[in-house]
Amino acid sequence: MPSVGRAVHPVAAVGLVLENLWTWYRRNWRATVVSSLLTPLMFLGAMGFGLGSQIRPGPVTEGLPYVVYLAPAVLVMLSTQVAASESSFPVLGSFKWDQRYYAITATPVSVDQLVAGQFLWIVLRVLLSGLAYLAVASLFGAFTSVRVLLAAPVAVLAGMAFSTWVLALAASVNDEGNAFGNVFRFVMVPVSLFAGTFYPISQLPAWSRPVAWVTPLWHGNELARAAEFGHMDPLTAAGHVAYLLALTTGGLLLARHRFHVRLKV
């Protein structure tokens, strides 16, 4: 980090925050392999190939194996989980335990630049995890077209539409157990089950479908599957993207506010 009193270009300041986070990750990346890659791949194997072997291809799966239908949604689910994980305990820890954020903002790096760097780091983590998943899952025949690469940025956007709100929460609480535990148990798990990850939401009771519509995961699933199967009209796709961008922006603005309040700047 730059010494106190020395002017730093805003872009360079954001880059310094990214460099700080990358340095930590480069030394500790092995601890994230299971949650970021192995778990979703095992999940894909169990549900896509295991359970999927008992599901006949039909109109919903475009006549393809169930694993092909499931794989893009697992990418979105993975991205959401990685983004939420990176936005929770590591962020709270930088406030509460190692107090890294206080040290950073004691330099010419501003709170806004800190938030921007943290946000971009989460984007990078999610993107790298998603690309690794795509590469390995492709070896097992889970994808049928290179168009699925378009699902990677879609999954990142869906992840950030959820995790920016977790980022705001992490900047607001001190009791990490209850706060994050409730988010993971009572929000992420139900959303994964009822947002069209494993089956179309048309299979849900009509009264419950609007609940799925408001979740970023459903919008990400729809876009990711459209990338894989190659069909969605531009207006519908634009609506999904606009909704995810709105959620991301709202969460990021709230997170920025909470960072300013907590760092008292």
Rank of each mutant, 00 (worst) to 15 (best):
H260A: 15
N28E: 15
I201H: 05
V191E: 03
P2I: 08
P72F: 01
A212W: 07
F89V: 13
G177P: 06
G141P: 02
A170W: 00
W218S: 04
M47N: 13
K96T: 13
Q99I: 10
L18W: 07
V109D: 00
I104V: 14
G181C: 11
Q81L: 11
G5M: 07
F180L: 06
R209C: 08
S129E: 00
V183K: 06
T23H: 14
E222W: 02
L75G: 00
G15M: 04
F43K: 03
R185D: 15
R256T: 07
D175F: 12
L114K: 01
V14F: 07
L157H: 09
V4D: 14
A168D: 01
V111N: 01
Q54Y: 15
Q118C: 11
P108D: 09
F259W: 03
Q118M: 04
L44H: 01
F162A: 05
V76S: 01
V154W: 02
F229C: 10
G15A: 11
S88R: 02
V109S: 02
A195V: 10
L75N: 02
Q54M: 12
G63L: 04
A168N: 08
A13M: 05
G63C: 05
V189K: 15
H257M: 14
N221G: 06
A71M: 02
M1E: 08
A238S: 15
G141F: 08
L150T: 09
W165C: 03
D98N: 14
F49H: 07
